[in-house]
C-alpha cells in the first residue's frame, strides 16, 4: 500500500482519539501529550496504537518502538513504520 500523507495520518489519529475519549473538546495538537493533555492511560494508548497499526495493516516489532508520548510521536511512529 502507498503510504498516506502526514495529514491523512493526523486525521486518522485524531479520529481514533475522539472515539476513545469522546469528551475531549477542542483541537488535538501534535504537541499534546497522550496522558497529561488528552487523559489516555496505558490501556488507551495501546488501543490507539493497536487501532492505527490495524488500519494500515502494519506489522510492527514492539522492540523497535521508542517511547510514544505525544500525538506527534504517534504520527512519527506511523510514518517510520510505513517507510
Amino acid at each position: 500500500m502507498t503510504a498516506p500523507s502526514a495529514d491523512i495520518l493526523r486525521n486518522d489519529v485524531d479520529e481514533i482519539i475522539r472515539r476513545i475519549r469522546p469528551d475531549f473538546k477542542g483541537e488535538i495538537k501534535v504537541t499534546d501529550r497522550l496522558r497529561e493533555d488528552i487523559g489516555l492511560d496505558s490501556l488507551h494508548a495501546m488501543e490507539l496504537l493497536s487501532a492505527v497499526t490495524e488500519k494500515y495493516e502494519l506489522d510492527v516489532d514492539i522492540e523497535e518502538v521508542q517511547e510514544v508520548k505525544t500525538v506527534g510521536d504517534v504520527v512519527q511512529f506511523l510514518t517510520t513504520a510505513m517507510a
Partner: peptide
Amino acid sequence: IQKQYGFKLFQ
C-alpha cells in the same frame, strides 16, 4: 506473543 501480535494484542 510480543513478536506475533505487537499492539494487536490489545484486540
